[in-house]
Design a protein around this nucleic acid. Structure first.
Lengths: 249, 249
DNA sequence: GTCTATAACGAGATAGAC
DNA sequence: GTCTATCTCGTTATAGAC
């Protein structure tokens, strides 16, 4: 009897996966706004009403795709964090971990541009994301926080500046997201988090066309600089440029 | 006769504007993917074939909306740059100008979220932007470059670091976009440009919901830090934090 | 109980004849 | 320009197969 239930459940999981796969295909072709239950069913040789056994509405299917996408990038980031060279706890190693996570997210985005657009692009008209998406949506951010927390614990951070009028927000952010970190760093991480996706959106959505050529190297450089803004130190604690100051002709 | 032609042309301009206004309304309601010439015509009491006298295809109407949006945000940025306090040529004044431009762009985005999504959100499926959009698309970036060029000329910049493997790309970028600026700065401006829109996209598209509360102040702080990454110095040339170094417990 | 198929609804888009 | 016949869509009610 348990084997029967097992078989049923296996079948259910398989059909559910097939529906989502086909939905993702249509996402890539026509965009989230035009995702249609009927078209998915047709393509799968089912009848549209049968889909309702698996997803109670079109919006719930969309939600499932969104959650899957967040989990997929989140997993990519977490895996990069886990497998990053666990060598000596130097500043350089922590910086390398930050870069590895960012590059993993970028790799995912380049491989799944349509799912990227689904979660980080324009909102789908008429659809409002339910509570269920907010957990998965924060996974990448939590990895970034973890990298900085490790660095803070093991080698320390350069404290970013923090204006007085930002202090309340900074303390709220730190309390909510990273109680171990100084408030100024919490603010900088949130900013860096969004700026990381700014780099990615411009690349994925084509704003870098005819502008940035060598995107691998450009991205790597940009996220290294981003790491500096959250207090990660790099090799030698270089605050400004080596030969800083003024630069004219 | 020239008055007749003038009247005709005036009418044509008016109808064109009415079509675009209605199209923008539909953009806000249903998203760019579902923009339909027929629906626009219906709402205006015209017949769909009449619209083709003004826009030869749905894609051309979309292009017009996109160009308008880029011009609109570009104009907001340029106007903020023009009217920014032309006081003394101090580092602080240049930083203030950078912030003013960024805040103007943010103000435009908050007022026109759907047009923002049209140009900085997910690409419209099946639509590829023609050449005509690339000029208007660069207006905001050119304002940012102008701010930094002014600062470079008048008070100098802190040179961002530049790795060896990035040098060819940096020199190409500088030659293309800002021949007056050091290559390292050109790279940083492009990065800051995309990161600025990362901040905006996260705010406009809802990623900051339940995360960032006081968005005005958060944004202002973030773009000030962004200014630092392009070499703008702020008041006192603070490279790192005043009380920098390590920060534990 | 779990699933699929048929049929239908109201709304909207589309194509073509006129 | 207008009208109509024919599509699509999301969703539900119902009936029957396993």
């Amino acid at each position: 009897m348990s084997t029967v239930r097992g078989a049923r459940e296996r079948a259910r999981i398989e059909v559910t996966a097939a529906i989502k796969d086909e939905a993702r295909r249509q996402l890539a072709a026509d965009g989230a706004a035009k995702l249609s239950l009927r078209a998915v069913a047709r393509e799968l040789g089912m009848v549209s009403s049968a889909l309702y056994r698996y997803f109670p509405s079109r919006d719930e299917l969309l939600t499932a795709l969104i959650v899957d996408a967040y989990d997929s990038v989140g997993e990519a980031a977490e895996s990069a964090h886990r497998t990053a060279d666990p060598g000596p706890s130097t500043s350089a190693a922590h910086l390398a971990r930050w870069v590895a996570v960012a590059c993993a997210v970028r790799g995912w985005a380049l491989e799944h541009p349509h799912e990227y657009a689904l979660i980080y692009g324009s909102p789908v008209p008429g659809y409002t994301a339910p509570q269920a998406t907010i957990g998965p949506a924060s996974r990448v951010g939590r990895v970034l926080i973890a990298v900085v927390e490790d660095a803070h614990r093991e080698v320390g951070l350069a404290l970013p500046p923090l204006g007085e009028e930002l202090r309340p927000e900074a303390e709220r952010l730190a309390a909510d997201l990273a109680p171990e970190l100084p408030p100024a760093v919490a603010v900088s991480i949130v900013a860096a988090w969004s700026q990381l996706f700014g780099l990615l959106s411009f690349e994925i959505f084509g704003q870098f066309n005819r502008v940035v050529e060598d995107r691998d190297i450009f991205f790597r450089h940009a996220v290294e600089e981003l790491a500096r803004t959250v207090g990660l130190l790099g090799t030698a604690g270089r605050g400004q440029t080596g030969t800083a100051g003024r630069a004219r002709r």
